[in-house]
Amino acid sequence: MPAGVRTLLLRPEAPALIFLVLLAIVLAFTAEGFLDPANLEDNIARVVVLGVIALGVNQVVLSGEIDISVGSMLGLCAFAVGAVGESQGGLILPLLAGIGTGVVAGSVNGALVTLGRIPSIIVTLGMLYALRGMILVITGGRWITNIPSDTRALGLQSVAGVSVPVIILVVLLVVVELISRNSTWGRNVFAVGGNRRAARFAGLSAGRTRFLAFVLVGVLTGIAAAIYVGRAGGVQTNAGQGLELQVVAAVVVGGTSISGGRGSSVAAITGAVLIGVILNGLVLLDVPAEWQSAMLGALILLAISTDALRRRLLREQPS
């Protein structure tokens, strides 16, 4: 096998990519309308919010932690975007409000995990409910509906025939992957997640590295919220409910190891697109929407089992 192909196959996202291609081929033959350019773009467009957040959660998982608070966090950020948009209009202010809200929520997560030394699953499970509670408390159950169209720009417009959300997703993928591969923090995330003890020995601050990963989730969730508001045109109190499951599914299905240290941003996006294609396929094949959650669960279990088996097969191969 040529060295290039071997390197490619060793990449964490390789199995998910191959599966995605095979699935696309099957759908191309079985599901009418799958290959329509509009439908193909819809596959990606419907998972932009999911994908943008998955880019952040992917870094958290790489560092050996988890964040399942993003469903409620998106809801809260969306309310910030919507409320500011409603009263002030424009794009920048609402976007900043969303990002700011996300950063605060992400910092709370990060601080509780790193300074409070509480396991991230408990912190973010608690935050999942606490943030949802905050949405209900702040809004009093009110929905935001009349959002001006300039606030919705990120979800509505398109450039040269490609919708803005898709462009944002690609740009963020490139940016996060560059940070991940070419910055000290990006590499420290892999080190801390891959071997905490050795990281300590090398003098890395595991706390700071993980804290920043949680903050990144906040930033990206804020951006995702602006896209969400743009696409949906309004915000309900249950905005983003259940999204955390899809995000974790995207990350682990894409090939990032749930035990940390192995994976890539490309993997997270591959996982997100795979979920988009599956959901799209379900619709095209007339499977009732109620089965979506079951499919998602099955997919998570399949992905983590494959990862476990791969680890077992790759057990200690000396060079």
């Binding site: 974790v248 109620e290 959650s293 079951a294 499919m295 998602l296 099955a298 279990l301």
Partner: peptide, 12 residues
């Protein structure tokens, strides 16, 4: 992770 997956699966 397992029960996060089965949470979605059972509810689904």
């Amino acid at each position: 992770v397992v029960t996060l997956g089965t949470l979605a699966l059972y509810r689904g």
